[in-house]
Design a protein around this nucleic acid. Sequence first.
DNA 1: CGGGATCCTGTCAGATACTG
DNA 2: CAGTATCTGACAGGATCCCG
Lengths: 134, 134
Amino acid sequence: MDHTIHGRPYEQTEDGPRFRPCAPHGVLARLGDKWTILVLSHLAVASGHRLRFSELKHGIEGITQRMLTLTLRNLERDGLLNRHYFPEVPPRVEYELTDMGASMLPALEGFTSWIRENWPRMEACRQTFDKARE
Amino acid sequence: MDHTIHGRPYEQTEDGPRFRPCAPHGVLARLGDKWTILVLSHLAVASGHRLRFSELKHGIEGITQRMLTLTLRNLERDGLLNRHYFPEVPPRVEYELTDMGASMLPALEGFTSWIRENWPRMEACRQTFDKARE
DNA sequence: CGGGATCCTGTCAGATACTG
DNA sequence: CAGTATCTGACAGGATCCCG
């Protein structure tokens, strides 16, 4: 039998539930990496949820070709976006959110709206905390 | 004037909006680290949103003392939980979600529910992707 | 234009040992 | 019991060069 609390798998022990590393962690780890949120933000507001490589690169301050490529590969691997390659000269490549990728946006938006509301307070907490142990 | 799209700051350029690194990324990076979600999950389901250090340590498979301490410090710094120290012998320390910490749970739950629904599909996409370029 | 291949670096997780 | 201190290897990510 598989037990879950709030959808998270755990095993019962005599001292209470013990969670194991699980899916939410893996996905949030991906979203939490340095560039993924920025890439998704751009595609979220783009017409057709679709942009070419150079538009993404120019739109994200400080990202290198390599990191953009890696970020896009990971998102493609997870099925969150599709890569469209046009063998023209010069070549053109467009990235587009999949249905699954687009379906994630409301959940992400819900979370980011919480963050926006609470961000000033978190920032204040950090400064208080840091000052208390300078 | 400060422009935002979906709450994210950006600067306008002749080629369209350019986002800058912003608060959502920082918070998600924290949540995405290896242990934070597991710590929050435990506190979320604990009575009074409150647990002592050893309960957390025992409840999270594989975490080291050091990493649990660091994870808890970061959450405390962000104002998401409080540390209660009882100078007994042996000492006892309890960690408790703050109001802000508890207010984050619904947003987190919304996100993790999306993940649970889509996780099998993401896993399938990864395997397809990996096989295609073995 | 898009991106693969290499090399290099700082950062951080993990293990271990010690302490009030 | 609940930490802190120290060391180490692994790895994320930046810089650079080249290629169809």
